[in-house]
Simulated scan of single mutants.
Amino acid sequence: MNFSIKKIIVITLVVISIIAALLGCDSDSGSEPDMEFHKKNQLTTIYKYGISPLNTDFVKETTTLVETIKRFQNDATLVNLQAAQKQWKAIQKVWKQLELYDLGNIASSFISFEINRWPSDIQRIDTNIKGTQVLSTAFITSLGSSSKGISGIEYLLFSNIENTSVLDMYTTDTYASRRMEYLLALSEDLQTKSIALQALWQTHGDGFTTALENGISGSQNLVVNAMVALIEEVILTKLGKPLGDSNGGTVDTQLLEAYYSEFSKEILQQHLIALQMCYTGNFGQNTEQEGFDDILELIGSKDVADKLIEQFSVCQSAIDAIQGSLQEEIISKPAAVVALKNSFRDLLVLIKIDMANRLGTTITFNDNDGD
Score class of each variant (00 low, 15 high):
residue 187 S to W: 00
residue 187 S to G: 05
residue 187 S to N: 09
residue 187 S to F: 05
residue 188 E to A: 03
residue 190 L to F: 01
residue 190 L to G: 00
residue 191 Q to G: 04
residue 191 Q to M: 09
residue 193 K to T: 07
residue 193 K to Y: 02
residue 193 K to Q: 11
residue 194 S to P: 00
residue 194 S to R: 03
residue 194 S to M: 04
residue 196 A to N: 10
residue 196 A to T: 15
residue 197 L to F: 07
residue 199 A to Y: 00
residue 200 L to E: 10
residue 201 W to S: 09
residue 201 W to L: 10
residue 201 W to G: 08
residue 202 Q to K: 15
residue 202 Q to G: 13
residue 202 Q to H: 11
residue 204 H to Y: 14
residue 205 G to D: 10
residue 205 G to N: 04
residue 205 G to T: 06
residue 205 G to C: 05
residue 205 G to I: 08
residue 206 D to G: 07
residue 207 G to E: 03
residue 207 G to W: 03
residue 208 F to S: 01
residue 208 F to R: 01
residue 209 T to C: 04
residue 209 T to Q: 03
residue 211 A to D: 06
residue 211 A to I: 10
residue 212 L to W: 02
residue 213 E to K: 06
residue 213 E to P: 00
residue 214 N to L: 09
residue 215 G to D: 08
residue 215 G to Y: 10
residue 215 G to E: 07
residue 216 I to C: 02
residue 217 S to K: 15
residue 217 S to W: 04
residue 217 S to V: 14
residue 218 G to V: 02
residue 218 G to W: 05
residue 219 S to I: 07
residue 219 S to A: 06
residue 219 S to V: 02
residue 219 S to Q: 04
residue 220 Q to K: 11
residue 220 Q to C: 06
residue 221 N to F: 09
residue 221 N to S: 09
residue 221 N to P: 11
residue 221 N to W: 08
residue 222 L to I: 13
residue 222 L to H: 12
residue 222 L to M: 14
residue 223 V to S: 06
residue 223 V to H: 04
residue 224 V to M: 13
residue 224 V to L: 13
residue 224 V to R: 08
residue 226 A to R: 11
residue 226 A to D: 09
residue 226 A to M: 08
residue 226 A to Y: 08
residue 227 M to A: 11
residue 229 A to S: 15
residue 229 A to N: 15
residue 229 A to E: 15
residue 230 L to P: 11
residue 230 L to D: 13
residue 230 L to W: 05
residue 231 I to L: 10
residue 231 I to C: 09
residue 231 I to E: 05
residue 232 E to P: 03
residue 233 E to F: 07
residue 233 E to S: 13
residue 234 V to I: 14
residue 235 I to F: 05
residue 236 L to H: 13
residue 236 L to C: 10
residue 237 T to D: 14
residue 237 T to P: 01
residue 237 T to M: 12
residue 238 K to P: 00
residue 238 K to I: 00
residue 238 K to C: 00
residue 238 K to L: 06
residue 239 L to G: 03
residue 240 G to Y: 03
residue 240 G to M: 02
residue 240 G to Q: 01
residue 240 G to V: 07
residue 240 G to K: 00
residue 241 K to I: 08
residue 242 P to L: 02
residue 243 L to S: 03
residue 244 G to L: 07
residue 244 G to P: 06
residue 245 D to K: 07
residue 245 D to R: 09
residue 246 S to E: 07
residue 246 S to T: 08
residue 247 N to L: 02
residue 247 N to Y: 01
residue 247 N to Q: 04
residue 247 N to C: 06
residue 247 N to V: 03
residue 247 N to D: 05
residue 247 N to A: 01
residue 248 G to C: 03
residue 249 G to K: 11
residue 249 G to W: 09
residue 250 T to V: 15
residue 251 V to Q: 07
residue 252 D to E: 10
residue 252 D to I: 03
residue 253 T to K: 14
residue 253 T to D: 12
residue 253 T to P: 12
residue 254 Q to L: 11
residue 255 L to P: 00
residue 256 L to P: 07
residue 256 L to M: 05
residue 256 L to F: 03
residue 256 L to W: 01
residue 256 L to V: 02
residue 257 E to T: 11
residue 259 Y to T: 07
residue 259 Y to W: 14
residue 260 Y to W: 15
residue 260 Y to A: 15
residue 260 Y to C: 12
residue 260 Y to S: 12
residue 261 S to C: 13
residue 261 S to V: 04
residue 262 E to R: 14
residue 263 F to N: 15
residue 264 S to F: 02
residue 265 K to L: 15
residue 265 K to T: 00
residue 265 K to W: 01
residue 266 E to M: 10
residue 266 E to A: 12
residue 266 E to D: 14
residue 267 I to M: 15
residue 268 L to E: 03
residue 268 L to H: 10
